[in-house]
Every structure is written in structure tokens, then in C-alpha cells.
Deep mutational scan, measured.
Amino acid sequence: TLEEDLKKLQLSEFFDIFEKEKVDKEALALCTDRDLQEIGIPLGPRKKILNYFSTRKNS
């Protein structure tokens, strides 16, 4: 689940933002850096999230 993935990244504090915006794993895989910025995710966590999901998509 998205919540489990965020826990792996030690970013579970952002789960509420994704839940509020109705972003699940499938939607997050389609998000850009700009999308994450617009919903209030800071730069460092955005980079970690985007890297994590891009490596999952390619495997």
C-alpha cells in the first residue's frame, strides 16, 4: 500500500496529505515533481518519493 511504501521511506507523516488529495499508489506513479510540490510535499521528500516510484515502475 502507499502507506507501507511511505513508511519504508520514513515519510509516513505525508500520508495524510496523499489521503486528503485522494492519491493512491497508481495516481502517485503518475505525479510529477510539480504535482507533489503543489500539494505541499517538501523538496527532499519529493525527490525520495519520485525516485522510489520511478525505480518500481521500471522493474
Rank of each mutant, 00 (worst) to 15 (best):
Phe18Val: 03
Arg46Leu: 01
Phe15Arg: 09
Tyr52Arg: 06
Val23His: 04
Asp35Phe: 05
Thr32Ala: 06
Ser59Tyr: 09
Leu28Asp: 07
Leu2Asn: 01
Leu11Ile: 06
Lys47Asn: 14
Leu6Glu: 01
Phe14Gly: 01
Phe14Ala: 09
Asp16Pro: 08
Lys20Tyr: 05
Thr1Leu: 03
Leu36Glu: 04
Asp16Trp: 10
Val23Glu: 03
Lys22His: 12
Cys31Phe: 15
Asp35Tyr: 14
Leu11Arg: 00
Phe53Cys: 10
Leu6Ala: 00
Lys25His: 13
Leu50His: 09
Asp16Gly: 09
Leu2Gln: 01
Asp24Ala: 11
Pro45His: 06
Arg34Trp: 10
Glu38Ser: 04
Asn58Phe: 03
Lys20Ile: 05
Tyr52Ala: 09
Lys22Leu: 07
Leu50Tyr: 05
Phe53Met: 11
Arg46Met: 03
Cys31Ala: 14
Glu19Leu: 12
Ser54Thr: 09
Glu3Cys: 01
Asn51His: 08
Leu28Met: 10
Tyr52Cys: 03
Thr1Asp: 11
Leu28Ala: 04
Ser12Ala: 11
Leu36His: 04
Arg56Lys: 08
Lys22Gln: 06
Ser59Asn: 02
Asn58His: 04
Leu50Lys: 07
Gln37Thr: 08
Asp33Val: 01
Pro45Tyr: 03
Ala27Asp: 15
Phe14Trp: 07
Asp35Ile: 00
Val23Asp: 07
Ala27Ile: 10
Lys48Pro: 02
Arg56Asp: 12
Leu28Val: 12
Cys31His: 10
Cys31Pro: 07
Glu26Val: 07
Ile49Ala: 06
Val23Leu: 14
Leu11Glu: 00
Leu28Arg: 02
Glu19Thr: 11
Asp35Gly: 07
Lys47Tyr: 02
Asn51Leu: 07
Glu13Ile: 00
Ile39Gln: 08
Leu6Tyr: 01
Thr32Leu: 00
Ile41Phe: 00
Glu38Trp: 01
Lys7Val: 03
Lys47Phe: 01
Glu26Phe: 07
Asp16His: 10
Asn58Trp: 04
Glu26Asp: 11
Leu36Gly: 05
Ser54Glu: 10
Asp16Leu: 05
Ala29Pro: 11
Asp5Cys: 10
Leu6Asn: 05
Ser59Gly: 08
Gly44Leu: 13
Leu43His: 15
Thr1Ile: 02
Glu4Pro: 00
Asn51Val: 01
Thr32Arg: 06
Gly44Arg: 10
Gly44His: 13
Arg56Pro: 12
Glu26Pro: 14
Leu6Cys: 00
Phe14Ser: 02
Thr1Met: 03
Gln37Ala: 12
Asp35Arg: 12
Ile41Gln: 08
Arg34Phe: 13
Glu38Ile: 05
Pro45Ser: 10
Phe15Glu: 10
Lys57Pro: 11
Lys25Asp: 10
Lys48Ile: 13
Lys57Cys: 06
Cys31Leu: 15
Ile49Tyr: 00
Ala27Thr: 12
Glu19Pro: 00
Asp33His: 06
Lys25Ile: 10
Glu38Tyr: 02
Arg46Cys: 07
Lys57Leu: 07
Ile41Glu: 08
Ser59Asp: 14
Thr1Ala: 03
Lys22Gly: 15
Ser12Leu: 09
Glu3Asn: 04
Asp5His: 11
Gly44Cys: 07
Lys57Asn: 05
Asp5Ala: 08
Ile49Arg: 03
Ile49His: 10
Tyr52Ser: 08
Asp33Gly: 07
Leu36Asp: 02
Asp33Pro: 01
Leu28Ser: 07
Val23Ser: 04
Asn51Arg: 12
Glu4Gly: 03
Ser54Gln: 12
Phe15Ile: 02
Leu30Arg: 15
Glu21Val: 11
Leu50Asp: 13
Glu38Met: 12
Lys47His: 04
Gln37Ser: 07
Leu11Gly: 00
Glu26Gln: 09
Val23Ala: 04
Gln10Ser: 13
Ile41Ser: 08
Cys31Ile: 12
Phe18Gly: 01
Lys25Tyr: 15
Pro42Met: 01
Lys20Asn: 08
Asn58Met: 14
Leu36Ala: 05
Glu13Thr: 02
Ser59Ala: 06
Lys57His: 05
Gly40Tyr: 00
Phe18Asp: 03
Leu43Arg: 15
Ile49Asn: 02
Glu19Cys: 08
Arg46Gly: 09
Leu6Ile: 00
Glu26Tyr: 04
Thr1Arg: 05
Cys31Glu: 04
Ile49Glu: 10
Val23Lys: 13
Lys48Ala: 13
Glu38Lys: 14
Ile39Met: 15
Gly40His: 02
Phe15Tyr: 08
Lys20Asp: 08
Lys48Gly: 01
Asp33Gln: 03
Asn51Ala: 13
Arg46Phe: 01
Leu36Trp: 04
Ala29Ser: 13
Glu3Val: 03
Asp33Met: 13
Lys57Phe: 06
Thr1Gln: 02
Phe18Leu: 09
Lys22Cys: 09
Asp35Thr: 06
Lys25Pro: 10
Ala27Met: 15
Lys47Ser: 14
Asn58Asp: 10
Pro45Trp: 00
Phe14Arg: 01
Glu19His: 11
Lys7Asn: 08
Lys22Thr: 08
Ile17Asn: 04
Ser12Lys: 10
Pro45Thr: 10
Asp24Glu: 11
Lys47Ala: 14
Asn58Glu: 12
Glu38Asn: 05
Ser54Asp: 08
Glu26Lys: 15
Glu38Val: 10
Pro42Phe: 00
Arg46Ala: 15
Pro42Trp: 00
Lys7Pro: 01
Gln10Met: 09
Asn58Gly: 09
Asp24Gly: 14
Val23Arg: 05
Gln10Pro: 00
Glu3Ala: 08
Asp35Leu: 01
Lys7Glu: 11
Pro42Thr: 00
Gln10Ile: 00
Thr55Gln: 11
Ile39Tyr: 15
Leu30Thr: 15
Glu3Pro: 01
Gly44Thr: 14
Gly44Phe: 08
Arg34Tyr: 14
Glu13Tyr: 11
Phe14Gln: 07
Asp16Thr: 11
Thr55Met: 13
Lys22Ser: 13
Arg34Asn: 14
Asp16Phe: 11
Pro45Ile: 11
Ser59Phe: 11
Gln10Lys: 06
Lys57Met: 12
Phe53Glu: 14
Leu11Asp: 01
Leu28Ile: 04
Gly40Arg: 03
Asn58Leu: 08
Asp35Lys: 14
Leu11Lys: 00
Arg46Asn: 08
Gln37Asp: 13
Ala29Asp: 06
